[in-house]
Write a protein that binds this DNA or RNA. Structure first.
Length: 225
DNA sequence: AACCAGGACGTGA
DNA sequence: TCACGTCATGGT
């Protein structure tokens, strides 16, 4: 059974720096990893560089709830096309327009409300970094979304856990199968260096690894598929 | 053509 | 607490 540190370095060796969070446009920068979007800022950890990028990460974190990223990207591009990838821009859209814009990302009724609720609070926070508690108090923001926003939009050292983390660490025997979100978070914090780069890369690397090898039934597919 | 995706909320044990 | 149903589109 590998340690978390070993797992992290194996993933880093295998896939290289991931440069999360993915943004629609890196105009003026040099993305080194190409994907369905412009690219990832691999090896650069001073993102977001603008308030617009910060807001885009927040919106992406909400839209990607239980949703494949290409779908989210379509919704983000749709919003950008309406000049609505900003608090004022979203407020300027009526519900029906907003709903249609984010339609490709699924759950569009719930997500329309989630975006409205988030924007209101985002305004209220102003320049201040929201606490985890403040984020969790927003309707539609749960543990993973709150931690993603803090880690990637605000550059806070906040461990992010997701379904892939559950699956991979559970499969490796590093956590119990019925471990809670907070259980996993505590385990990961205890087993890894507590710096921003490690936190940002660890989660991104797990997602990359899971996309390649940990679909929902990897061993079933492997044995019987 | 089922099956799944970078969850969160509401409800009833 | 906790297990379970619900929400919805697009890719494979």
């Amino acid at each position: 059974m590998p340690t978390l540190r070993q797992l992290y370095h194996r993933l880093l060796d295998a896939y290289g720096p991931q440069g999360w969070w993915p943004l629609l446009d890196y105009a003026g920068t040099n993305p080194t990893k190409t994907g369905s979007i412009t690219g990832y800022h691999c090896g650069l950890y001073d993102f977001p560089r603008t308030p617009a990028q910060r807001f885009e990460i927040c919106i992406g974190a909400i839209l990607t709830q239980n949703t494949a990223w290409p779908n989210v990207e379509q919704a983000l591009r749709s919003l950008a096309g309406l000049h609505a990838l900003s608090p004022d821009g979203i407020d300027g859209l009526d519900d029906e327009t907003l709903r249609q814009a984010i339609r490709p990302s699924g759950y569009f009724n719930a997500k329309t409300r989630k975006l409205r609720e988030f924007v209101r609070n985002y305004r209220h926070w102003g320049e201040r970094v929201p606490t985890r508690r403040e984020l969790l108090a927003v309707w539609g923001v749960g543990p993973e979304t709150a931690d993603s926003i803090r880690l990637y939009a605000y550059g806070q050292v906040e461990m992010v856990i997701d379904a892939y983390t559950h699956r991979i660490l559970g499969h490796l025997g590093l956590v119990d199968a019925k471990a809670s979100y907070d259980d996993l978070k505590a385990t990961c914090i205890a087993g890894l260096p507590g710096d921003l780069v490690t936190y940002q890369e660890f989660h991104a690397l797990l997602v990359e690894h899971a996309k390649r090898h940990y679909r929902r039934r990897p061993w079933i597919d492997g044995l019987f598929g």
